[in-house]
Amino acid sequence: MNRILIIDYGSGNIRSVYNAVKKVSSKKISEIKVSSSANDLKKCTHIILPGVGAFEFCLRGLKRKKLLGCLEEVVLDNKKPFLGICVGMQMLATKGYENGEFSGLNWINGEVRKIKTGKQKLKIPHMGWNNLHFKRKTKFIKQLLRKIEFDKNKEVSAYFVHSYNFNNKNQNEKIITSNYGGEITAMISKDNIIGTQFHPEKSHYFGLAFLQTFIEQKD
């Protein structure tokens, strides 16, 4: 039985994430919990870290809840499947440059910097639906693409809303990209860790399929 924990650290659209996970849950899911307790982190099988707001504000929220140590233990040592969404992904970086320079969790090598729109007068935030390009066919992606009955001629888009981009170092960890002015890191992955810049909980059928693929991951 899977137990999904959505981390509540005082930021973000927790309810949207909860609603979407609930929608795609099957009998195999015994509970979906929204919590910030270390005890729940230890008991759960899957972890979702939502994130809306500024990089440092979100990190501070995690610290205030005294969750960092326990989170590192269950994700990095116990290897529980982890999904960070939007700023929940950005916080995994080495450094973030939103409203100053801040250290991130450094689980995935890279920096979070303001989107460069180049010479085009593109609007910031990058807000709305954008096409996804699947760069690496990981096991997760294969399962996801099967679920959405993907074929090459089909466009797949997801909902983004952000002003900063995760420039990750290791290209192998960049799984999905999008394009806005330049390349946008849409999904990263390393071992049991997944991060998405887009909001699966707001990306309609594709997003629901994404969350379902995640919660069906085996421990």
Partner: peptide
């Protein structure tokens, strides 16, 4: 609505 519509 938020329980049924998965768009912003």
């Amino acid at each position: 609505t938020a329980e049924q519509c998965f768009v912003p």
